[in-house]
Amino acid sequence: MYFIFDNLYFPPVSEADDEGILAVGGDLSPERLKLAYNNGIFPWFNEGESILWWAPDPRMVLFLDELNVSKSMRNILNRNIFTVTFNTNFEEVILNCQKILRDGQDGTWISDEMIQAYVELHKQGIAKSVEVWQEGVLVGGLYGIDLGHIFCGESMFSKISNASKVGFIALVNHLKKENYKLLDCQVYNPHLDSLGCREIDRDEFMSILKSK
Rank of each mutant, 00 (worst) to 15 (best):
Y2A: 01
F3W: 10
I4R: 00
F5W: 05
D6H: 01
D6P: 00
N7H: 05
Y9G: 02
Y9I: 02
V13E: 02
V13Q: 01
D17A: 00
D18M: 07
D18N: 12
L22E: 00
L22G: 00
A23Q: 00
G26P: 00
D27I: 02
D27R: 05
S29K: 02
R32D: 04
A36W: 11
A36D: 14
A36I: 06
N39E: 08
N39H: 15
F42D: 04
W44N: 07
W44H: 13
N46Y: 12
N46S: 13
N46P: 11
G48F: 11
E49Q: 13
S50G: 10
L52N: 09
L52Y: 13
W53P: 02
P56V: 13
P56A: 08
D57M: 11
V61C: 01
V61T: 03
F63G: 02
L64Q: 05
D65I: 00
E66W: 08
L67W: 03
V69A: 06
V69K: 03
M73I: 04
M73N: 06
R74S: 14
N78Q: 09
N80K: 15
T83A: 13
T83N: 15
T83G: 09
V84Y: 11
V84C: 08
F90T: 01
E91P: 08
E91Q: 12
E91W: 05
E91H: 12
E92K: 13
E92I: 05
V93L: 09
V93A: 07
C97F: 03
K99M: 12
L101P: 05
L101M: 07
D103Q: 14
D103F: 14
G104Y: 14
Q105E: 13
G107Y: 10
T108C: 10
W109P: 07
D112F: 06
D112Q: 12
E113G: 12
E113S: 15
I115N: 08
Q116T: 13
Q116F: 12
G125L: 05
S129L: 06
V132D: 02
W133D: 10
E135L: 04
E135G: 04
G136N: 05
G136Q: 02
L138V: 09
G140F: 04
G141T: 01
G144K: 06
I145C: 07
I145W: 03
L147G: 13
L147S: 11
G148E: 03
H149T: 05
F151W: 04
C152E: 02
C152R: 01
G153E: 04
E154I: 15
S155I: 08
M156V: 08
F157T: 13
N162F: 15
K165C: 10
F168S: 02
A170K: 10
H174M: 09
H174I: 04
K177E: 11
E178A: 13
E178C: 07
N179Q: 08
N179D: 12
Y180A: 08
Y180K: 06
K181G: 00
L183P: 03
L183W: 03
C185G: 01
C185D: 01
Q186R: 13
Y188P: 01
N189V: 12
L195C: 10
L195T: 07
G196V: 11
C197W: 01
E199G: 09
D201N: 14
D201K: 14
R202A: 07
R202K: 15
D203P: 08
I208R: 00
L209H: 04
K210R: 09
S211H: 01
S211D: 00
